[in-house]
């Protein structure tokens, strides 16, 4: 499921960026740092859509780096148990197949008669969430689930 939420992060900025474009530098660095990461709590950060607030910077002793508390709006993707997703099959082995729905990897056991790169609609039946990664297992044994398009057909 996707969420549009406000997150906060302390950004360290090198003194060489201090100047007229300090703010732009800060935002581009934030995007580079945050987009595509995964936190167990919020899920995958898909995109930053705006900056809510940049707080007062604090100069670090010794280094000259400045820490800015930045509040930003972003779209996150967090898979939940019971959620229906469409995914692309990335690998098939004799135990089942792996599929990807955007950044999240899903394993479906016991289905081997399936082709790589086909699209499937599946239901998540379990998630394993670490601090920095999320892995799901799914099933295609339910109503309206299964292969929705074959690579051969297209």
């Amino acid at each position: 499921m996707f969420f549009h939420i406000v997150l906060e992060r302390n950004m360290q900025l090198h003194p060489r960026h201090f100047g007229r474009e300090l703010r732009e530098k800060l935002v581009s660095k934030l995007m580079k740092d945050v987009e595509g990461t995964c936190s167990g709590r919020h899920g995958f950060v898909v995109a930053i859509t705006g900056i809510e607030d940049i707080g007062k910077g604090i100069i670090r002793d010794g280094t000259g780096f400045v820490t800015f508390p930045v509040k930003y709006l972003c779209v996150v993707f967090r898979p939940f148990k019971g959620e229906i997703l469409e995914a692309t099959v990335t690998m098939v082995n004799k135990m089942g197949f792996f599929a990807e729905a955007g950044p999240v990897q899903i394993f479906v056991s016991n289905h081997v008669k399936i082709q790589k790169d086909s699209e499937v609609r599946l239901k998540i039946i379990g998630t394993r969430v670490n601090a920095t990664e999320i892995f799901c297992i799914g099933t295609i044994k339910d109503d309206f689930l299964g292969v929705i398009s074959d690579p051969a057909g297209s």
Binding site: F98, F107, S109, I125, G126, F135, I137, T139, K141, D142
Partner: peptide, 25 residues
């Protein structure tokens, strides 16, 4: 019966260690 919510388990034939589908990756 519905084959629902059952997490497939795997077992090592040699050392008997058990895993389930969540460990797949």
């Amino acid at each position: 019966l519905d084959n629902k919510n059952t997490v497939q388990e795997y077992v090592c034939p040699k050392c008997g260690k058990r895993y389930n589908a969540l460990d797949a990756i």
